[in-house]
């Protein structure tokens, strides 16, 4: 299970990546390989490999530097339009979830359909106040999404030293123990 059986795929994947990101991925594989895995995230990591690559290369500061040097390291700008679309979709989903007219079955289906991005944001919930400082987004929208995500996905507070919470516990069950 995991990377031990999938070294070839990781090599193939990393050949197509920018050098720094390929280095990152091969290290992830190595971190997993040298340890007792137990349960891990092999399928999820493969599914999320594209978003992870994008999240490492989506760096506005480094993008400016890339432009300044006239080179191409695969760095991109932030996905502003995509983000506002995602925020609107998420807001619609929560409106339906709160509505008394929505049946329980429909609510259950809706919960299942909540996008993974919402769960990513729930991990970032502690930074909601910083997020609100970004003037180009509407403060209430960003805070609304982040706090709702936090309320949905976490039952206790999480901090840097001791990550708690129902979802976090489940999430961390699948990280490698070193």
């Amino acid at each position: 299970m995991g990377f031990n059986d999938d070294e070839q795929r990781i090599n193939e994947l990393s050949q197509e990546m920018p050098k720094e990101i390929a280095k990152y991925f091969s290290k992830v594989a190595k971190v997993h390989k040298g340890n007792k895995l137990g349960l891990s995230w092999p399928i999820s990591l493969k599914k999320f490999s594209k978003p992870i690559i994008q999240s490492l290369s989506n760096d506005s500061v480094m993008y400016s530097i890339q432009e300044g040097t006239g080179t191409n390291h695969g760095l991109t700008k932030s996905a502003d339009n995509k983000l506002s679309l995602m925020i609107n979709e998420t807001k619609e989903a929560f409106k339906k979830l709160r509505s008394k007219d929505t049946s329980y079955i429909e609510k259950y289906r809706l919960t299942k359909a909540l996008p993974a991005s919402l769960f990513f944001l729930s991990g970032l919930e502690a930074y909601a106040s910083e997020a609100s400082d970004i003037s180009k987004y509407n403060e209430n929208e960003v805070l609304g999404v982040l706090t709702t995500a936090g309320g949905l996905a976490t039952t206790t507070n999480a901090d840097d030293q001791d990550v708690g919470g129902f979802f976090t516990t489940f999430a961390l069950l699948f990280t490698t123990t070193l």
Binding site: Q54, S55, N58, A79, K82, F119
Partner: peptide, 10 residues
Amino acid sequence: DLISNSSYSP
């Protein structure tokens, strides 16, 4: 950037 990255999730 990190908030924007969430929109890349499948």
